[in-house]
């Protein structure tokens, strides 16, 4: 009986070894050859040695076979690792051989799906930011200092930064160049310390805010304040706002909207419209 078990184990091991040799011939580069050959050969030879021990029965031959099996199991993976490391450090590259089905369109379309998904996530974040931004209405005449005072109070409260810091930053940003743009909107923006925070405040000033001689009455102001790591939002939102205010009839609707929620609705619908046009 023991002989039969031994023969079965040896047959199993021999087939494993032979398949490993076949892999050594068939595989395209050194790393895959190592992968197929050494693992299969380790298991196969260990099987043969156990089979020999079972076949011979208790005795010195079996003892030596088991000892040899321990050696093979310990040394073979180690030497495979050494060779792989040597191959890697002597600069051998992985061969780019993939199955036909994996090349061309399939992998490309998969990558495309992944990027599109990430894009939608980003877009949803933008929508989320705008859907939750605070909207301010100013019904009397103000100059830009007054506006900054008001905005910095609000932003300081939301972002937990001292209002004076925000006000100073807004004023010095304004000194560098005027943030008001044609037609009739302004986009003051600052970078604050910290991370993971981005706020936008939309302001409707029916009677206009005095920014400079060129822009005496700016009626819509979008103040953005974000940390450095969130700065990509700034560029995206800026692009959206510029497109938004250039759409026809935006300012009419902007001035006619009866309350804050209607203004927010107007912003969100405008952005949706821009996106649908793009698609």
């Amino acid at each position: 009986m023991n002989e039969y078990i031994g023969i079965v184990l040896i047959a199993f091991g021999v087939i494993y070894d032979l398949l490993a040799c076949l892999g050594l011939i068939r595989m395209p580069d050194i790393y895959t050859r190592l992968q197929t050959a050494t693992k299969a050969v380790t298991v196969g030879t260990a099987c043969i040695l156990i089979g020999a021990a079972v076949y011979a029965g208790p005795g010195p031959l079996a003892a030596k076979a088991l000892l040899c099996m321990v050696f093979v199991l310990l040394t073979n993976p180690t030497s495979a690792h050494v060779i792989a490391r040597a191959a890697h450090s002597s600069g051998i590259r992985v061969e780019r051989v993939t199955a036909e089905g994996l090349m061309g369109r399939e992998i490309e379309s998969e990558l495309w799906d992944v990027t599109k998904k990430e894009d939608t996530v980003q877009k949803d974040l933008l929508m989320h930011i705008i859907a939750n931004c605070s909207i301010v209405e100013i019904n009397q005449h103000v100059n830009k200092e007054g506006l900054f005072e008001l905005v910095s109070q609000k932003l300081g409260h939301i972002q937990n930064v001292s209002p004076d810091v925000i006000k100073n930053k807004l004023i010095s940003r304004e000194k560098e160049s005027v943030t008001a743009l044609k037609p009739d909107f302004a986009i003051p923006h600052i970078i604050i310390a910290g991370e993971d925070s981005f706020e936008i405040i939309a302001i409707r000033a029916k009677k206009g805010v005095f920014f400079s001689e060129d822009f005496p009455a700016v009626r819509s102001v979008f103040v953005m304040s974000g940390t450095q790591d969130q700065w990509s939002f700034y560029l995206r939102i800026l692009a959206l706002i510029v497109q938004l205010v250039r759409t026809e009839g935006f300012f009419d609707k902007w001035l006619k909207a009866s309350d804050k929620e209607e203004l927010r609705e107007l912003l969100l619908n405008g952005i949706k419209g821009i996106r649908e046009n793009k698609n």
Partner: peptide, 21 residues
């Protein structure tokens, strides 16, 4: 490449162990 040959030698050695057994 040289590592290919090293792998071949190693596998051959282990198969010879089985052969001897």
């Amino acid at each position: 490449t040289a590592p290919d040959r090293a792998v071949a030698i190693e596998i051959m050695g282990i198969i010879l162990v089985g052969f001897c057994t």
